[in-house]
């Protein structure tokens, strides 16, 4: 559901991956991480990228932001190729990566686009700090605030760029469970206020279900033996691709306890090679998503 931009922020732009592959050179030759990724992210969509660790989720995101280059294929934002450190996208890293000698407000101001006037920049930073609930901590240093606050600062810094595409690399992965839930709600609020295309890398199935319009599961292709589990089998296969694309039903904010999502969750975990444990006890699981009221 491409949302229409209502605020001062830049319009959301679509992102397109065409046959993207990435191999890293090692002593033993090139080691492919990604292979033949074809993906179209609609403007204004929240797309979650799920996958086991080391499958190239972050690499895909970094390629989309111009922090890394694909070895094959190409990535475009609104039809034009992604430049190095592309100015149309902003990235929220897994770690806050704040400059410790700057205040929270100054760190957020780092994200402002070049050429922003001082007054406009200050007003924008103040508004963003208000949005992420850190207005009263504007003059604090990063070491004086909690991890969740630092991550919110990092998010505000990415938003300060008024990005057409917001790239989030497991932004809440290092936070405690409750803070993570609050941050997810915050992200949805922000997306409602400033609609932008969001690519969210996560390893948390629930997070993906809660936030995303669509979920892409990245993994090695189930070619030779689909039941392969363990890293040994992963190493043998040449790079990860898209294994599954799931459209998450319903509209946000979603009920975290919904049975529909629980079923979808089970399927996604299954796709990630996690046993649902129901089958082990002989409990039949339905393969269709039950419709309300179940």
């Amino acid at each position: 559901m491409p949302a229409t931009p209502t605020s001062t922020s830049a319009a959301a732009l679509p992102v397109e991956f065409r046959g993207v592959g990435r191999a890293f050179p090692t002593a033993a030759g090139a080691r492919p991480v990604l292979r033949d990724v074809d993906l179209v992210v609609e403007a204004g969509e929240i797309l979650a990228i799920l996958g086991p660790s080391g499958c190239g989720k972050s690499t895909l995101l970094r390629i989309a932001g111009g922090l890394d280059r694909p070895t094959s294929g190409r990535v475009t934002i609104a039809g034009s190729p992604v430049a190095d450190y592309d100015a149309r996208s902003a990235i929220g890293f897994q770690e806050p990566r704040l400059l410790p000698w700057r205040t929270v407000a100054q760190n957020v101001a780092l994200g402002l686009p070049r050429g922003t006037t001082r007054a406009a920049g200050r007003a924008h930073v103040a508004r963003l700090l208000e949005l992420v609930g850190l207005a009263e901590f504007a003059e604090h240093r990063p070491r004086e605030i909690s991890g969740g606050m630092a991550q919110r600062t990092s998010l505000a810094r990415a938003l300060a760029r008024s990005p057409h595409v917001l790239l989030l690399d497991e932004p809440f992965g290092a936070l405690d469970a409750l803070t993570r839930l609050r941050m997810q709600d915050l992200l949805l609020e922000i997306h409602a206020a400033e609609p932008t295309t969001v690519l969210l890398v996560t390893h948390d199935v629930d997070e993906a279900l809660q936030l995303a319009d669509r979920i892409v599961v990245l993994g090695t292709q189930p070619s030779a033996d689909a039941s392969a589990d363990g890293p040994a089998a992963e190493d043998a296969t040449p790079g990860a691709g898209i294994r599954q694309t799931v459209v998450v039903p319903g509209t946000r904010p979603r009920d975290r306890g919904s049975a529909e999502l629980a079923e979808l969750r089970g399927r996604l975990l299954d796709g990630l090679g996690i046993d649902r444990h129901g089958a082990a006890r002989g409990i039949q699981s339905t393969s269709t998503i039950p419709a309300f009221p179940y």
Binding site: G65, L67, Y85, A90, F93, R97, L110, G111, R157, R161
Partner: peptide, 9 residues
Amino acid sequence: LLEAGRAFG
């Protein structure tokens, strides 16, 4: 930090 700086232009 360097990469973050570069990523923000």
